[in-house]
Structure formats: structure tokens, C-alpha cells
């Protein structure tokens, strides 16, 4: 089970709800993934446009909704977005993300730490999206974040575990769940993250932008499960040279 704050989840796969062709497809993918935590975002209301009913189907599926603060460029903006999200969804769970740079969407570590500290004091369950920096992750943990969400690679880049060496340190040191977020582009990336000992992964683009999001969601679910099972089983150690798997006896020497 994945334990975050006061809740437990049987699935270790979190899904982002963005980029799906339509809400129906998103719901099918969520169902196929078996995930229990789904991220959402905020924007200014456009009441002239009809709105698809996004929330009720998710609530009927008993999904824990995790609003994010995407669009915030500073701690002040993120706190404002967090308060809006809390009222919009009536939840104090929050994926904190602050990325002022539109090209690489790298999270701002200083603003993220400042915002996290304030939001925890305001009673939020804070899950910060952050760079794969072991020192920062430790600081986020120390100010009371319920988990840390270091990036594998840039958001939506599908490049996989570019930060692997740092993630290993973060996982080794963490006493809160480590959720690898961003950049996971293939089920094998998710499996690799889980084999490292990650508590969970969050995937969006790789599923939503696939040709068959429902099948891809299922593939990610299987890979997360396989990776976790492998981690629990204990991976064999790597060796710099060959080690024989069959007996190297001299039984053919007489020929």
C-alpha cells in the first residue's frame, strides 16, 4: 500500500488528467490504470463555453482529486492558487508546482520551498513537484510535505529517468513517499523508477498522447506493479565481469 498523509492507496500509479482528447477517454484511461489519485488544474472561468462534467465521474470512481498550482510563478501565486483549489474541490490536498520558465518548465526550488512551508502551516497536504535535488527534497520533507515529487526529466518530454543518480539518493534518504513525476515516457521508465524504490510515479503525457491511451494506461499499471514487485524481491547486484549460470566443468575435455 502507498501511504500519503492519512490516506492509503493500493495503486502506486498517479495520473495527470491533461491532454486527453476528451473527458470520456480520460475516464476510460483512469479506469484501465487502476489509479486512485488524479491531478487537476485551475484556470479562469469561461462561462460562455459549455463545460463537460469533469468532476462527478471522477468522484463516482472514488478518485482522490489532487489539484495543482500550475501557472504559478512565485510562492505568493502558488498560495493563492492553492486557496482557490481548496475551495473549488473542498480538499486540502495539493500538488505544489511553481515553474516560471515556460520552455523547460523547471520547478523553482526557492519559491517551492517557501510556498511549501507556508502551505503546510495553512493546513494543506503538500506534494511538491521539484527538481531531483536530494538537499531540496530533504528540506521539503523537513517543512512538513507529505511526499516529494522529484522530476525524472522535463514535463512532457518523455525522456525517462535523466536524473536517475540523484533519484537514488533522494529515495535512500527519504522518510516520506517519493513520487517520480514528469518525463516518464514509456512503461519501462515507470518500471525502472519503481525498481529504484520509488513509492509511486505520476504519468500524464505518455498516456494521454499515446495512440491508444486506454491500452497505454493499462501498460503503465502493469509496469508499475512489476517494478514494485521486483524492488521488493530484491534485484541481483550488477557485476563488472561475467558470472556463469551453467556449470563450467570439463565434461567435454575427452573429445
Amino acid at each position: 500500500m502507498l501511504h500519503i498523509a492519512d490516506k492509503s492507496f493500493s495503486s502506486r500509479l498517479l495520473l495527470g488528467s491533461g491532454k486527453f482528447a476528451n473527458p470520456g477517454l480520460m475516464q476510460q484511461a483512469i479506469q484501465a490504470s487502476g489509479c486512485q489519485l488524479v491531478t487537476l488544474a485551475l484556470k479562469r472561468l469561461q462561462w460562455e463555453q459549455p463545460q463537460d462534467d469533469l468532476l462527478n465521474p471522477l468522484r463516482e470512481m472514488n478518485i482522490q482529486l489532487l489539484p495543482n498550482t500550475s501557472g504559478a510563478k512565485t510562492a505568493k501565486e502558488a498560495i493563492f492558487a492553492a486557496e482557490l483549489a481548496r475551495e473549488a474541490l473542498q480538499t486540502n490536498w495539493l500538488k505544489l508546482e511553481i515553474h516560471p520558465d515556460p520552455r523547460y518548465l523547471m520547478p523553482d526550488p526557492i519559491e517551492t520551498l517557501l510556498a511549501a512551508e507556508q502551505l503546510v502551516k495553512l493546513g494543506f497536504v503538500v506534494l511538491p513537484y521539484c527538481s531531483a535535488d536530494p538537499v531540496l527534497c530533504k528540506r521539503l520533507e523537513q517543512v512538513g510535505c507529505a511526499a516529494v515529487m522529484p522530476l525524472g526529466a522535463a514535463i512532457g518530454s518523455n525522456q525517462g529517468l535523466q536524473t536517475r543518480a540523484m533519484l537514488e539518493i533522494i529515495i535512500e534518504q527519504a522518510t516520506v513517499p517519493v513520487i517520480i513525476d514528469a518525463g516518464l515516457g514509456a512503461p519501462s521508465h515507470a518500471a525502472a523508477a519503481m525498481e529504484l524504490g520509488a513509492s509511486a510515479v505520476l504519468v500524464n503525457t505518455a498516456i494521454a498522447a499515446s495512440q491508444d491511451p486506454v491500452a497505454m494506461a493499462s501498460a503503465f499499471a502493469q509496469s508499475v506493479s512489476a517494478g514494485r514487485t521486483a524492488y521488493n524481491a530484491g534485484l541481483a547486484t550488477t557485476q563488472p565481469h561475467a558470472t556463469a549460470s551453467s556449470p563450467l566443468t570439463d565434461f567435454l575435455a575427452a573429445l
Binding site: G18, K19, T39, A41, L42, Q46, L84, A85, L89
Partner: peptide, 10 residues
């Protein structure tokens, strides 16, 4: 008055 709504996002 500023009005906001929940939308899909990652």
C-alpha cells in the same frame, strides 16, 4: 470578482 474553474491538468 475573479472566477476560476477546475480543468484537466497534469
Amino acid at each position: 470578482v475573479q472566477l476560476f474553474q477546475i480543468v484537466t491538468g497534469g
